[in-house]
């Protein structure tokens, strides 16, 4: 019977002891322990979130880097092509300019030669006129004196003209 009949003294002391243990542990053990565990869990989950965030950012950065690299490559090729085109243009222009200059110069030279020729011809023409007049004078003079001599003279003069 004693086995299943509770004793008042033990109930009293047990209530007291368990109550004190409960209060003491609640204040000095469970509160710091549970708080620290909760803090740690929060820290861990925050770290995990941060890590994920950083990973995502890193991936975005990587993508950005790749696209930037691709852009730069494209730009380089474009610049290169442009430079080549420009160089080609410059050369072509230079060539063009050179050829036009040459033709111009040649035309100028031609014109100068022509002008000189014309002036020379004019001069010759004048000379010839003068010479003809002189010759006619002399012929007329020789005719008047000697037929033969005048013929010779004319021949002589003509030779001179031709030689000139």
């Amino acid at each position: 019977m004693e086995l299943v009949s509770p004793g008042l003294g033990l109930i009293f002391w047990m209530t007291l002891a368990f109550g004190i243990v409960l209060l003491v542990l609640r204040k000095y053990a469970w509160r710091p322990i549970l708080n620290t565990i909760r803090e740690r869990e929060m820290y861990i989950s925050k770290s995990l979130r941060d890590a994920q965030h950083i990973q995502r950012e890193l991936a975005a950065l990587e993508k950005l880097k790749e696209s930037k690299l691709k852009d730069a490559e494209k730009l380089r090729l474009e610049l290169l092509a442009q430079a080549r085109n420009e160089a080609d243009d410059i050369i072509r222009l230079a060539r063009q300019k050179a050829s036009t200059d040459v033709t111009q110069m040649m035309e100028d030279a031609k014109r100068a030669v022509e002008a000189q020729r014309k002036s020379v011809i004019n001069e010759i023409r004048g000379q010839i006129a003068l010479l003809s007049v002189d010759m006619a004078e002399m012929v007329l003079e020789g005719e008047l004196k000697n037929k033969k001599a005048s013929t010779d003279l004319v021949n002589q003069l003509l030779d001179k003209v031709i030689l000139n």
Binding site: L8, W13, M14, A17, F18, V21, V24, Y28, A29, I33
Partner: peptide
């Protein structure tokens, strides 16, 4: 009224003390 410190009461005191010592020291470490 029998409020004697019997074997079980004494044992409860010991184990209560033991639990307090263990968990307070662990709590301090936390």
């Amino acid at each position: 009224l029998d409020l004697s410190i019997t074997k079980n009461v004494f044992s409860v005191f010991i184990s209560g003390f033991l639990i307090c010592v263990i968990f307070i020291s662990v709590g301090r470490r936390y």
